[in-house]
Design a protein around this nucleic acid. Structure first.
Lengths: 204, 204, 204, 204
DNA sequence: CATGAATGAGAGTTCATTCAT
DNA sequence: TATGAATGAACTCTCATTCAT
């Protein structure tokens, strides 16, 4: 005989929403510290100060908490760029400076989330669902940049590919800078080369 | 009386060496197929055709087998470049063509190991020990390229940083190309932009 | 200070009585469909349209609801016979026909409750309390039949035992017919043999 | 990624066979005492004196142990009749006495397994797989009896149905006698009526 | 050297019951 | 009276590791 599960509860009251948030954040924090496979549901419950049972009222299963956390994190991460108003005006002259600012802000937000980032990347590689979320947001990011460029007259052939190569450059810098630091490298210089190359890609 | 663990045996006889190799290869193959956390030691033993017990004569624990496998794999992966003889001569004229060939070969070897690559990257991000191995090899790769460039007179300021930014570009292309493919992007064009940028970095 | 449990409430108001009835009926319906161990109290509450908490005002525990439902069901089941008026007159001539009618009606009511029957029998075997209820009702049934027979002059030695063997025969037929059907058996013939044997038992 | 389970081990060595038997017997004994749903796997392991893990080497899951136990039990139960040699000769004169002996033996073996019987019947009603086993064995029993009767010249019309009605009568007696005893009934008399009716069914 | 049966801690999950509101 | 969010003990099952043979 089949057992029907209680449907997942959508919290409405303030206390419930906070509790759900608490579970997500705790889970994410623990995953940051120890990795997804080393975090158990009883541990999450204990650290979050809730019972094991309640977790399964708000989430389908352990993996579901992860996804919620990843979504929150990624949205926060990419918001630096996604939140730029669509009607922002940039003159060619301002571009380098503008770009420099954004990149620094972006890299900074990563630094702040350093530990998390590597765990997230682990999941991007190991978890198809996380990969999908990441891919989607990356595309949104790319589309946003393309749109901003076009609106300000920086039209180029193959603009999508140019933007993607640029994003790759930034990611790679980020990766080196936040996670994989080699001692004998000077990251300020790498930053400069990176911006230089990107501007090259969009020079008239 | 305290119990002492049997020390890890270093195989000397040919048969033993082969057995150890078999365990490593089997483990790696299974990890490629299913990921580290989905492979169990009894399964490894069975597929490798050995007893579960013997595994713990050759390796400290499950993780230890992983490390051995990762080392083997990465050395193979980077051999495209690391095996280039130190006294190879390249004239400035040949450089673009030469470079193009190497990149294609590199990307190809990745494509071939596509499945493996994402599983390995997962481990780079999740396992400090794997990360260390990866970092070390990447540095060797970087050093090799710098050395080849210097020997052929392509001296540039901050050459290490330039090489690293280039490696980042290639990695990023690889990632997009093998693992994370977006449908609306033209990867041949991205390849071209990537080589173009790298050559820019080393233009006189 | 010791905590005292709220006593089980006996509903007096109409609305309460209806609510209690609703819980019993829902529980029984769900048990029929899925079996006792596959029905959860939150599910009962939901389907019955009440809160989980209120269930524990009306019933001691989950098992208590079951018992209430079983009682209702069994009374309904045996009513075919128990409701026959005590002063019913049957002549020896009418007996076979009369008996045939009753048996058919009885078997039919079972067929109708087929699914329920097996779930109930499971409980008769597994739950001492249910067994007791069943036993008691079976005895009432037996007494009723004996009384009807005596009032109509069908006195026989060991009449109680004869009636019980008859009841066993009918049960057995029921079981075969409703629950445990073997394909190669002709149940009409079995029905005929059963009635024949019972009449034999009461032949003068 | 899918995980492949270790296949269920078929014990070959004496010690393993005994261990498997021990698990089956312990499980069955515990089910007799408390019912299937009230027995836990750790409990089985503890009482059987094995580890929880080993259970899952020999059995697919908890239900699988149950099935093994039920099979053992039922074969033992029906062996009284199934083990009668096919070439047994019975003259019409001997039949009543012969039959009486077998029935007494059968009822006795039930009495001996009294507690078990009710738990098994519970499972016949609740577990489709157990029901199937029971049905199959009942059919074997029926076929055996038919075959014995035919070989000894007791041919009758609708012999299968006659035999089945007889089996029903015996079951019903058994049930009353071992499990569901009513105090005011004389079971010796019921036994006599039962045999009488069965003999009636096969009278020339 | 080698085996593989055995271990047992701990995983994710469920659900009868309680209690603050 | 009534609610339903919350509890947490207990469930089935897994698997890295050990050890008697």
């Amino acid at each position: 005989m089949e057992k029907k599960k209680d449907p997942i509860r959508k919290p409405i009251q303030k206390r419930s929403i906070e509790k759900k948030k608490k579970i997500i954040d705790t889970t994410f924090k623990l995953i940051e510290e120890k990795g997804y496979y080393s975090v158990s549901t009883p541990e999450i419950a204990k650290v979050a100060g809730v019972s094991t049972g309640i977790i399964y009222s708000y989430f389908e299963d352990k993996h579901d908490i992860l996804i919620a956390g990843v979504k929150d994190y990624m949205e926060q991460l990419f918001s630096t760029i996604l939140d730029i108003p669509d009607d922002t005006k940039i003159t060619p002259k301002e571009l380098p400076e503008r770009f420099d600012k954004i990149m620094k802000k972006f890299i900074n937000s990563h630094k702040h989330l350093k530990q998390a980032h590597s765990k997230i990347m682990e999941l991007v590689y190991s978890d198809p669902k996380v990969d999908e979320i990441y891919k989607e947001l990356e595309m949104k990011l790319s589309d946003k940049i393309v749109s901003l460029l076009l609106k300000n007259g920086f039209n180029r052939t193959n603009i999508n590919e140019r933007v993607h190569v640029s994003i790759g450059l930034v990611n790679s810098l980020l990766y080196e800078n936040t996670y994989h630091k080699h001692e004998k490298l000077n990251y300020t210089r790498m930053f400069d080369y990176t911006t230089e190359l990107i501007l090259t890609l969009f020079k008239a």
